[in-house]
């Protein structure tokens, strides 16, 4: 069991959890992740280690609540326990040991790029962090990144820092010259945009891939993605890869495998929570017996519902079922 020591909400849907994990705190290196299994019946979720305190025996995880499982995690309070934390997993970041590096963080990815920035700074590399969010309240880890060097903050709506995307600011930094490497962590479209931006400049660029995985040891193959035309496993061969070689389209596509399931599960979970908090009969009516998995498996693979309907229609018409 791993006790939650501290929690803080960093942005409208991003929460920081500090949890006890002494062994991992002692040996983890930048870029590595853990797999968190909150309780029996919960999902196993890969989360990059945002920070660690070996003396206190704690690690920091930064979680974006996007589904039922992540909402359950960010609902944890100090003193609560997490059943299982496995790691540290993945290869550590190959850190530059001299020169100038740019660390690009988008949304929750800013927390993931943080240990890389600190690791680079500790090796004497000049670090420029370019981070962004939709608006001011979505910007996280700005102060923490200042410990590594200069920080350029961007917001999509201009409510804070520079107005625009991180790629706009990154272009200026690269054009100013002297950039030896770029480390990018964030949503897939952002990482792909960063890769396309740096490619013509020939600047080595690394992206950290947040693929779907179960075990984190190479056993399930769920995190497979094409890099340089060859299928690799994000969990053991990565999570960081040469961004110029990553098939981001495939990565984004595979990340969407369970989108319908997740939307359904989140819906059910929220209704159940609402039901637990109020005695409102109409809410209870909806949520009462709905399972997390859609009762009709057809919702999980798009197009299946229509296939089922086709079969029903065929059955009605007297044709044998396929």
């Amino acid at each position: 069991m791993h006790t939650v020591i501290d929690t803080a909400q960093l942005s409208p849907n991003v929460t920081r959890l500090v949890i006890e994990a002494p062994r991992i705190a002692e040996i983890r290196r930048p870029g590595q992740f853990v797999i968190v299994h909150r309780a029996p019946g919960a999902e196993r979720i890969p989360l990059t280690i945002a920070d660690a305190d070996p003396e206190r025996g704690t690690i920091t995880l930064v979680i974006q609540a996007v589904g039922k499982s992540t909402e359950d995690l960010v609902a944890l309070r100090p003193g609560d326990a997490i059943a299982d934390v496995a790691g540290p997993l993945g290869k550590a970041t190959e850190l530059l040991d001299h020169g100038r590096a740019v660390c690009v963080g988008g949304g929750v990815g800013t927390a993931v790029v943080h240990p890389i920035a600190l690791g680079l700074a500790a090796l004497g590399v000049e670090v420029i962090s370019v981070i962004g969010g939709r608006s001011k309240e979505w910007v996280i880890f700005e102060d923490e990144l200042r410990r590594a060097g200069r920080v350029i903050t961007c917001t999509d709506d201009g409510s804070y820092g520079r107005h625009g995307f991180v790629t706009d600011a990154l272009r200026e930094v690269i054009e100013a010259g002297g950039v030896d490497a770029v480390y990018a962590v964030g949503p897939v479209p952002m990482m792909r945009a960063v890769a396309e931006l740096t490619r013509p400049y020939g600047v080595p660029t690394f992206a950290s891939l947040n693929a779907i995985m179960l075990d984190g040891t190479g056993m399930c193959g769920g995190c497979r993605v094409a890099v340089g035309g060859k299928t690799v496993y994000a969990c053991v061969d990565g999570p960081e890869f040469d961004a110029h070689q990553v098939d981001f389209r495939e990565l984004a596509d595979r990340l969407g495998t369970y989108r319908d399931f997740e939307a359904h599960a989140l819906d059910v979970a929220r209704k159940r929570r609402a039901e637990a908090q109020s005695d409102s009969a109409d809410v209870a009516d909806v949520a009462g017996s709905a399972p997390i998995h859609a009762p009709d498996g057809s919702c999980l693979i798009p197009g299946l519902a229509t296939a089922a309907e086709r079969q029903e229609a065929a059955a009605v018409a007297g044709e044998p079922r396929a």
């Binding site: 019946g41 919960a42 999902e43 196993r44 039922k68 499982s69 359950d72 179960l214 075990d215 056993m219 399930c220 495998t257 369970y258 399931f261 997740e262 599960a265 399972p291 997390i292 998995h293 009762p295 498996g297 057809s298 999980l300 693979i301 299946l304 296939a307 089922a308 079969q311």
Partner: peptide, 22 residues
């Protein structure tokens, strides 16, 4: 098999999803 067995996705109450095909 890991999704279905270890993670219990055969049970509709499990948080772990598994694809189902006709």
């Amino acid at each position: 098999l890991t999704r279905v067995n270890l993670m219990g996705a055969w049970n509709p109450e499990s948080d772990t999803p598994v694809l189902k095909g006709h």
